[in-house]
Computed example of a mutant assay.
Amino acid sequence: MPAPHDSKMPSSFEGNEEFYETSRVTKFFRRVTAEPLIPIGMALTCWALYRASRSIRAGNDRDYTNKMFRRRIYAQGFTVAAMVGGSYYYADEHKARKNIEVKVAEQRAREKNRAWIKELEAREEERLEMERLAKEERGGQ
């Protein structure tokens, strides 16, 4: 009697390298390289806030502290402008990338569906063969 099919059932994440390999760090660096002005604006904001807080703790000149707070506001404005400008600038590119990703995902889904159906057909053939052999054994005794 043939052995039952030992392979596991196909998974919906099977063959999806991005699901298993993409980490938060990878996504972060991909975003930083795609739109570098945003992290620069964030760094400038943090730097200005840090300098202002150090100036307050040290009790230094109030003019310098106010100057740093103004720079923080300018840096935040730069960051927001970079985000808005980037969203307009990259809008077409994002749409094109999404369309490609959708088409690739649809193709992968069709391939997985075909593999799933093929696996189910193979298992059904094995089941029918086992039933036929079991009937022959009962009938032959």
Rank of each mutant, 00 (worst) to 15 (best):
M1F: 06
P2E: 12
P2H: 08
A3H: 15
K8L: 11
K8M: 09
K8F: 07
M9K: 10
M9N: 10
M9C: 09
M9D: 10
S12P: 11
E14T: 03
G15W: 10
N16L: 07
N16F: 08
F19R: 15
F19G: 08
Y20K: 14
E21Y: 08
T22Q: 07
S23W: 08
R24E: 14
V25F: 13
T26S: 13
K27I: 15
F28S: 10
F28T: 13
F29M: 04
R30W: 15
R31S: 15
R31Y: 14
E35T: 08
E35Y: 09
E35M: 09
L37C: 11
I38E: 14
I40N: 14
G41P: 02
M42W: 09
M42C: 11
A43P: 01
L44V: 03
T45K: 05
C46W: 13
W47Q: 09
Y50E: 02
S53N: 06
S53F: 03
R54S: 02
S55T: 02
A58K: 01
G59I: 01
N60M: 01
N60R: 01
R62L: 13
T65N: 09
T65Q: 05
N66D: 02
K67S: 06
M68S: 00
M68Q: 01
M68H: 00
M68Y: 00
M68G: 00
F69P: 00
R70H: 14
R70C: 06
R70A: 07
R72F: 01
I73M: 07
A75K: 00
Q76K: 10
G77D: 06
G77R: 08
G77V: 04
F78K: 03
T79D: 11
T79R: 12
A81T: 09
V84Y: 04
G85Q: 03
S87A: 08
Y89F: 11
Y90L: 08
Y90T: 06
H94Q: 07
K95P: 00
K98L: 03
K98R: 08
N99E: 01
N99P: 00
N99K: 02
N99S: 00
E101H: 07
V102D: 13
K103V: 04
E106G: 05
R108A: 10
R108F: 03
A109S: 14
E111S: 02
E111A: 03
K112L: 07
R114K: 08
A115C: 09
A115W: 10
K118P: 00
L120A: 12
L120K: 13
E121H: 13
E121L: 12
E121W: 13
E121C: 07
E124P: 02
E126Q: 04
E126D: 06
R127K: 10
L128N: 04
L128V: 04
M130W: 05
M130I: 04
E131A: 09
L133K: 11
K135L: 15
K135D: 11
R138W: 08
G140K: 14
G140H: 14
G140R: 15
Q141M: 12
Q141E: 14
Q141P: 01
